[in-house]
Design a protein around this nucleic acid. Structure first.
Lengths: 201, 201
DNA sequence: CTGATTAAATACCAAGTGGTACTAAATTGA
DNA sequence: TCAATTTAGTACCACTTGGTATTTAATCAG
C-alpha cells in the first residue's frame, strides 16, 4: 500500500487551513496563492485534491455547516433539556463559536451570505439554503416544546424560530463588529428574556 | 464660468452609482472596470474625481452612514415621541432600508464590517467606529428615556443599547438571507416585545 | 480665430488572477 | 535494478487587477 511518492501535507490539514482562511478573508479576497502559502500545498496539488477555488470554498462551507449541525445543532435538536435551557445553551454556544479563543471571529456562513447577497450564484443559493435549514431545526424543536406543553399552544412557532435565528445572526455580526465575549453573553441573556412571553402559564 | 470641456457625467450621479455597486458586490469583488461600466465615467475620470478605489469606497461608506444618521438616526435621536414609539419607528425604518423596493438589499455597513473582519485595515477600523457611533446614539436616547421616567431607573442602558443595535444588525443580516418584508416586520415587533421589561411601572 | 483650460478617451504598465502542462522526485512491487 | 505509480514543484498560460501617461476633444475668454 501507499505506493508512489509520500504526501508532504495531510489533505485534511490543508482543508482545515483553507477553511480558516476563507472564513477570515472571504471568497473574493482569498487568492489561490494565499491558499498555497497558508496550506503549504502547491497549486496543482490543491486543484488535484479539491477542484477549483469555487469547489474548495463550497466544500469548506458545507463542512463548516455540517460541523455546526452535528455539535450545537444536534445538542439543541435532540437533547431532553427544557426549551429555555436548550435555547440558552444554543445561544451561548454561538457566542463561544463566534468569539472563541483560537478560532476565527464571526460566522463563516453569515460572512458568505453577506458576500453573495448582491449577485445570484450557486454559492448564494447554498448559503441561503443553510439558513433555511437552521430555521427548520429551530421550528422543529419549538414545535416539540409546544406539544410538550412547555410553550403556549398559540405560540407562533414560525415567528419564534425566525426571532431566534435572528439572534444567532446578531451575535455573529456583533462579534465581527468587535464585541467581546461578556458583551455577547449579556446580549444572549437579554434576547432570551422574551421567551417567558411565549411560555405556558 | 464653466470653461473647458463640459462634463459628460454628473460626479454626484457617478458617486451614487459607485456606492450602489459597492453595496451590492462588496469591496474586493468590485473592480474599477465594473465601476467604469456602471457609472459611465472612464477610469482616469474616476481617479481624478475620487482618488483610489480605497478612497472611493471609504467616501461611499461615509456618505451612506451620514445619510443614515441624518434621517433615521436624527429622527430617533431628536424626536419627542415616547421611547417605545421611537424604537419601533427606528426598527421599521431599518426594515424599509434593508428591503426597500428600489434600493439594494441588506446594509452596506454590515457588509463592510463583515468583509473586513479578518484582517486589520483602516476600513475595518472605520466601519467598527461607525458601529460604535450607532450604539452611542442608542445609549444617549435611552438615557434620556430613563431621565424622563419612561424606563426604569435601574435599566441597564448599555445592555439595552447593545440589544437594539443587535436587532438592527439582525434585520440587515436576515434581509441578506432573503427574508421578505413582512417577515422582517414581524421580527421587529417581536424584538420590541422585550421592551416592557425595562419600562417604568 | 487663438490660446488657455478642462475633461474624455485611448493606450498602456507591472503585478496578480484562476488554472494547467510538464518535469522532477520519491516511494513500492517485481 | 527497474518499471510503475503517485506526488511535489516549476514554469507557464491568457486574462484581469489597480493605476497612470498621453493624446484628443470640447468649451470659453480674449
Amino acid at each position: 500500500m501507499a505506493r508512489g511518492r509520500p504526501r508532504k501535507c495531510d489533505p485534511e490539514d490543508v482543508f482545515d487551513k483553507a477553511l480558516t482562511l476563507f472564513w477570515k478573508k472571504g471568497y473574493a479576497a482569498t487568492s489561490m496563492n494565499d491558499l498555497v502559502v497558508e496550506t503549504g500545498m502547491a497549486k496543482p496539488g490543491l486543484y488535484a485534491n479539491f477542484g477549483s477555488k469555487d469547489d474548495l470554498f463550497t466544500k469548506a462551507l458545507r463542512h463548516y455547516f455540517d460541523r455546526f449541525l452535528s455539535t450545537l445543532g444536534k445538542e439543541f435538536a435532540e437533547a431532553d433539556a427544557p426549551i429555555d435551557v436548550a435555547l440558552r445553551t444554543l445561544l451561548l454556544g454561538i457566542v463561544r463559536a463566534s468569539k472563541g479563543d483560537t478560532l476565527c471571529v464571526g460566522c463563516f456562513l453569515l460572512n458568505t451570505v453577506v458576500e453573495t447577497t448582491g449577485t445570484p450564484s450557486e454559492l448564494r443559493d447554498l448559503s441561503r439554503e443553510m439558513g433555511e435549514r437552521r430555521r427548520k431545526m429551530l421550528r422543529d424543536r419549538l414545535r416539540r416544546a409546544v406539544l410538550a406543553g412547555e410553550l403556549r399552544q398559540e405560540a407562533n412557532v414560525e415567528d419564534l424560530a425566525q426571532f431566534i435565528s435572528g439572534q444567532m445572526l446578531a451575535i455573529a455580526a456583533m462579534a465581527s463588529e468587535g464585541a467581546d465575549r461578556p458583551t455577547l453573553e449579556r446580549f444572549a441573556e437579554n434576547a432570551l428574556a422574551v421567551l417567558p412571553l411565549a411560555r405556558a402559564a
